[in-house]
Design a protein around this nucleic acid. Structure first.
Length: 105
DNA sequence: TGTGTGACGATCG
DNA sequence: GCGATCGCCACAC
């Protein structure tokens, strides 16, 4: 019953709820955190990433399905490999198949 | 205390 | 259809 209504905390919890093989968009996380128009804050909050171990930020992508820029796990393109290993479907364009792998809370 | 910036998203022109 | 701009809120200085 940790009713901490801190936005960052809600973001982290929402991201953790993303099942293996699925991804969510920044906007979706923002909605889950109670700030439907604060997608930027989600990105900024995840960038701060208070818990990188418990928070699979690599499962959070653009609504377009593109992966986040400026940050990748261990190297450019590795983030995509991680998602593929988790069962996420990728398109020839190098984006996530949001139609099948978008996790809606 | 106030201003600026930022892993985005949607709308306007 | 594409480019540019605004809005959103949190955090650093």
């Amino acid at each position: 019953m940790s009713n901490d209504s801190s936005f960052p905390k809600l973001v982290f919890e929402a991201v953790r709820k993303i099942p293996c093989g699925f991804v969510s968009a920044y906007g979706d996380i923002a909605i889950a955190a109670g700030r439907p128009r604060a997608a930027r804050i989600v990105g900024y909050t995840l960038h701060r990433n208070d818990d990188p171990v418990e928070t699979p930020c690599h499962r959070v992508v653009f609504k377009d399905g593109s992966l986040a820029s400026g940050y990748v796990f261990g190297g450019a393109g590795v983030q995509r490999e991680i998602l593929e290993k988790e069962g996420v479907i990728f398109t020839p364009e190098g984006k996530v198949d949001m139609k099948k792998c978008r996790f809606l809370p």
